[in-house]
Design a protein around this nucleic acid. Structure first.
Lengths: 228, 228, 228, 228
DNA sequence: AATGAATGAGGATTCATTCAT
DNA sequence: GATGAATGAATCCTCATTCAT
């Protein structure tokens, strides 16, 4: 079993034996320059508005390609978009990978903050690409919902897997359901913190928020003598 | 300052001197029977698909009214939808209100599970209405996003307010930022558990999930001797 | 033959045996207060936008009357509008009449400036009413075009009649076609000077423009020795 | 500074370094035959009714093109209409240009009659096209009003410019404001004579009217000994 | 393979007038 | 006479996808 670890939208995603998303051959046959022009202008378009509001016209105008060519390179907008998502994931990995090598050497919840920071660094360095990815979570397109759910499941599975290790090692109480911690972390990342980024909250504050949450998760909110 | 406590989409909302959303006079002038026919068929439509996919045609066909009449009764689909949301909130209150009267008598996190269960009961008893409400969180309509953000803020504020009380009373550790707990609870409800309901997870399981999360939040995941 | 002299849109109109425009009996049966409310709010509406853009909705909302009532009081928007035009003409007459009594005592072109000034005074004193009238000339409604053409013809006829007198008295050269002078004066008023008023040109400047035109008409533009 | 002289709607227009109005590329890409079919049927439509009454349906039915194609070729009806106006101007130029070459050789007011006649010849030879242009002056469409005002200003400026020359040469009295003559001529053309054409007044009569007006403007209406 | 014109269904909204109470 | 709900035709504009060259 090979783990591909993906940091996606400020969340860790481990994709298990994930199938690469391959664009149509006609697109791959284009010269590198043209491929890049199409990809980079598509990123501009998909970062500027949520997927459901993007039209084929937007793409062909931005990429300066004929309408017919679009359908020769891609099946439809979903096809192109999934290609971009794939690309975003690859770029994100560069930021997250170094940290993942340290998995197992220390409690994962301690490592988690660093993963989160790496995700934030990625988001700042490639804001367009980050936004393309974040828009996945807004779409009501059935295919994309399916894809998103799969990514979500993978993300939660990966987090659960790593937390489980900590439980086995003895850091985490045995009666705790680590899947619930995974869910808390995943949703906080994907849903809430995306929004903070959108609002322009300074990095420092965002990181503090995560720290606060980690403290709650680690040590609980109740005083020891509370019989809640 | 009067608090209206609303339970909305499985989240507690304290609305401070909230202005009721009033439909157009032309709609209110209709006889009760017709009003109800329009409302109930609109609920069917808005529960079956997310807001952004609903068309005026869907409504007028379901309600059996002429196109022109729709615009006489409502400004547009947003107008009608907000009216339904308002209605859903009122119905939900019936389930939640009894529990809210007990606020202050015991730690709120203990009460929270009951509030959650009441929300679940509402969702089961009025599944259509529940879904109409849950669709608010999917829309990309600017007006609805604004409305949703306001509701979200109110929900988090309300939860924070109640948790703050517990902190003052001494249940919750003083250095904890209760707003973060509020966010965890709010998002788990609105985002995650909505999905469980959608998947058809049995009530019992859903409630167990909440219990597990509450335990983590209350007592933490780490063993006491862990230096995390 | 009785002459009704009307000063309309800064132009003199003599209406020959003009038939009064009478509103429907149902409207006249209303109490004075209600009649006035309807008229004054209709003036607001028709002064704010050109006739072709006014809807029945605009009127019933401004006048606070039921939709059905509108059709009881008036045949349609044209009916109401013509009623307002009639009213505007009556008000304008108050300003113009005193000057008309002096017709025949001096060359009409000398008197004309005073008539023009009186029209300007009216326009300033009853700006709403003035605008209601000026909008007649923009409409593409067949009925209103017909009405406008009739008014135009009457205006030109009246001016021609008065200028003819001057020609008979010996002021104006015998070979001159006074109808052309009438047309110049009429169109300058109705078309060009309306626009100056709309642009907010100061009264003083507008009057100077008329003076300049009158000098050209009276004495010509060419030097005596020009063989044009 | 280059002067382009345009004869537009029976009025002389000198357009100073005027930018051509260019239709969308998608329209220009059509084969000549199709372009012509669309243009000529649009001319039929826009000559038959004033701009404000023309619908997209009218155009697509007349031109036998699908609704969607219309929006591919033109932004909207204004876009198409301005294209036609541009076209009309070009055609009109053919009639007027020869006369403009003689400007400066004789008093402009003498030349004016010939310009007017040329305009009349154009109007008779291309009655549809002439009417398309004349409808510009009736529209209440904000964009077209702006366009019309610009054309009007250019027309009056051009006439003023040419009359000013005559004043410098010594034909026109120095104290005369030539702008007022320009306004008289412009409005008589655009507003009044358009109507004569519409009524079907014979050319001979129309030309006589202009002659009469020119005599008034040149030599004045008053007898020399009149102290007006 | 490249191109971009062709298509027409589909959605939102407005409005004058009638008609039932 | 007062009222205001009922009606549905009409209009603008968008868009994904196909197809002929």
């Amino acid at each position: 079993m090979i783990f591909f670890l993906h940091y996606y939208d400020t969340s860790v995603i481990i994709m298990l034996e994930r199938g690469e998303y391959v664009p149509k051959k006609t697109f791959l046959n284009l010269n590198r320059q043209k491929q890049e022009r199409i990809i980079s202008s598509s990123i501009s378009v998909f970062s500027a508005k949520p997927f459901d509001h993007v039209t084929v016209k937007d793409i062909v105008e931005a990429a300066q390609i004929p309408r017919g060519s679009f359908y020769q390179y891609f099946d439809d907008l979903v096809d192109l978009y999934l290609h971009l998502i794939e690309y975003a994931q690859r770029v994100k990995m560069v930021y997250v990978e170094p940290i993942l090598t340290r998995v197992g050497q220390e409690p994962f919840l301690n490592l988690y903050l660093e993963l989160f920071e790496a995700g934030l660094t990625f988001a700042k360095a490639h804001f367009d690409l980050y936004q393309v990815g974040s828009h996945l979570f807004l779409s009501q397109n059935p295919q994309l919902i399916k894809h998103m759910k799969a990514i979500e499941q993978q993300g939660i599975d990966a987090l659960s897997y790593l937390l489980k290790k900590d439980q086995e090692t003895g850091f985490i109480k045995t009666h705790i359901d680590v899947v619930m911690i995974a869910k808390i972390l995943y949703h906080l990342n994907v849903r809430d913190l995306i929004y903070e980024l959108y609002k322009g909250t300074p990095d420092q504050e965002i990181i503090q928020m995560v720290e606060k949450i980690l403290i709650i998760i680690k040590y609980g909110a109740y005083k020891e003598d509370t019989n809640g």
